[in-house]
Write a protein that binds this DNA or RNA. Structure first.
Lengths: 254, 254
DNA sequence: ACCTGAACACCGTTCAAGT
DNA sequence: ACCTGAACACCGTTCAAGT
């Protein structure tokens, strides 16, 4: 039932895991995850093992399923050992989030495109795919813009794609931000186990249809005329509209 | 650190609070919150007092700050008493979410507009305002589409507005969904205490600017040319683009 | 020096005893 | 019948004792 992530309790003087200041306090903020040390004197070998196992547990059981006793058990150590690698549970979650944000980067390393519209589409769909592959992680993306090394690298690739097609820095920033916010907002309400199937949306449609028609005429009317709008269809509709609306602003090319 | 909301543990046979099936199991799903009974034999008087106090605590201290001992203390009862009104903590959170989703509905009761674009703008900005007033609630909106009475009523108003301007049921549904997803996605990454001020975005900008320029040239370039894009400016940009992109689809009026 | 079993503190939930 | 103090179970975190 956890949401401690990024929420500082009373001790406001502490550096909150996941914030820019916190990432900057890591030595390896621009290097790979595996050889960073939580603080002076911490061991540097097996960090990735814990993070990887944490990702697995969250994928399998959700955020609730991740407790330090289970993580310790599955990595063959004790709970106290975890505190030799991480300051607290939040740090583990922050690393886990950045880990899944790094997935799929290899395949898109040399992404280029001749059309900025296609670039937007690629950016949006890759992000959406990433979210779809780790639906249980979506609640962890709600606190702030992630700024871990993999998150920044992802941002770099996307912005580079837009800049290389002649968009100004301002326009590229706003375009990227709008797209990512739409993708996140869309993915975020479909993050149940079975959400990326059509199970859940069918249930909601049936619910809307069963409402008192006198009281909620528009909701019922719309539900009745939804011959099952799929998640993908809704996503495409919003993304297309957004890109179409950006066209007049990108007057550089055809 | 809780995210139990909507996450069923092992006992899959239970009805999960917040789902359509759960709301349907309440007698008063189409009535006001105050006189519903959690189950047979539960008292019906003071439910709203607990929910209202829960909202206050979450607004003040975040979701972490809400524990049942504190809630019991501030409502002058004991923890066990809470279980005579709610099945568990999740139910309290579900009611609290629906309560804040109901705010501001009175003022917009007779909203009409001659322009569908303006309607979209009103829908988006009212939702955004609601989120901005309860930033600590945003993590609770990540599990699924809320379908409590106030959420449905909000949906009714918005869809009615769009339908009354000649949009088809399909188009109204997709339009509403796209707008709400953008608004949610935008609000969700600004949900810190000070997020709706420019504090946080300035910090992120400074962070991007401080990165290794050889490694992240595009990120740094964009950060350099962001003379502080404000939250509002970004929101307006995305919303305007989305509405502009919807125009060709709404061919009914000028 | 590094590790860790056991304890501590906290919180959701339940139950037996109150009125 | 309704309420509730006290206990239980669980989990994040720490510490004193191991090697």
């Amino acid at each position: 039932m956890m949401l401690s992530l990024f929420q500082s309790p009373n001790n406001a003087s502490e550096i909150v895991p996941g914030t820019p200041a916190w990432w900057q306090s890591r030595k390896d903020s621009d290097s790979t995850l595996s050889n960073c040390s939580a603080s002076v004197g911490r061991p540097r070998v097996p960090r990735d093992k814990f993070v990887g196992e944490a990702v697995k547990i969250i994928d399998e059981l959700g955020i609730e399923g991740l407790n330090l006793r289970a993580l310790a058990l599955r990595t063959g150590s004790g709970t106290a050992t975890l505190y030799r690698h991480f300051a607290n549970k939040d740090e583990i979650l922050v690393y886990a989030v950045d880990k899944i944000l790094g997935e799929g980067l290899v395949g898109s390393r040399h992404l280029t495109s001749s059309d900025w519209r296609l670039s937007c589409r690629v950016i949006a769909e890759l992000a959406y795919l990433r979210y779809a592959q780790h639906p249980n992680f979506l609640p962890l993306l709600t606190a702030q813009v992630p700024v871990g090394p993999n998150a920044v690298q992802k941002r770099e690739r996307a912005l580079n794609l837009l800049l290389s097609q002649g968009l100004s820095a301002q326009l590229a920033a706003k375009t990227y931000s709008s797209i990512m916010h739409f993708v996140l907002g869309h993915a975020i309400q479909f993050n149940d186990k079975d959400a990326f199937s059509s199970e859940r949306s069918g249930e909601i449609q049936r619910f809307y249809r069963s409402l008192n028609e006198g009281k909620y005429p528009s909701v019922v009317a719309v539900a009745d005329h939804l011959p099952m709008i799929s998640d993908e269809e809704e996503f495409e509709f919003g993304l297309n509209s957004l890109i179409r609306g950006l066209e007049p602003l990108v007057s550089k090319l055809s």
